[in-house]
Design a protein around this nucleic acid. Sequence first.
DNA 1: ATAATAAGATACCATTAGGTATCACATTAA
DNA 2: TTAATGTGATACCTAATGGTATCTTATTAT
Lengths: 106, 106
Amino acid sequence: MTDIAQPCFRALSDPTRREITRLLATSDMSIAQVTARFDMTRAAVKKHLTILSDGGLITVKTVGRERINHLNPAGLLPILDWLEFFDAFWDDRLAALKTAIEKDMK
Amino acid sequence: MTDIAQPCFRALSDPTRREITRLLATSDMSIAQVTARFDMTRAAVKKHLTILSDGGLITVKTVGRERINHLNPAGLLPILDWLEFFDAFWDDRLAALKTAIEKDMK
DNA sequence: ATAATAAGATACCATTAGGTATCACATTAA
DNA sequence: TTAATGTGATACCTAATGGTATCTTATTAT
């Protein structure tokens, strides 16, 4: 029950952190640069970045007095691995799924 | 900034809830049946099921005095939509998965 | 009719989470 | 050298989270 995916799911469970990942997808940023995009203190942003790092979603490189945060898309793989479990069931449950969706739309 | 995906990400952020989804992938279960698989009270399990329902990951049907919990794989689509943003950063594995699901739903 | 079973509802508790303010330290600029 | 900048670290606050216990109601079985 080691649950390797937990730090990743945890990291993505917060909207601010998901937004940070999208920001970093466009370019690397220092903590101050990320903070400039949000209405919260640097300390709060730093906590989010730490959690993203724990989840393997970003890497951090020290450049002078700055900490450059860099997106690590491979950190999303635990999520994909987890989702793949349901591949088999999508086929099996296809009929029920169609019915359920169609009924919901009425 | 309505963040439609938040209830889904939130639902999957807890290991117990992820395990429940896998359980329900094998068969529908009443609350008591789900509870029998975990070392916690029925009230705790019920809370998890409510959060999974809020996240659109399960549906609940009343049968007599029982509440039958049923996996709703389509509830995972918000996650896939969100992940799709990162397609540019790796291969097309994710997009293939998502389009396969959507094709099945039609 | 009575007892057993399934679940809803509420109050409560300890811990975690997201946030702030503040101070110290390292690096760069003047 | 001195001042400004970027960050680390800590203490603290409030709300949310995951859990329990307990009581009530609805349904099913004897």
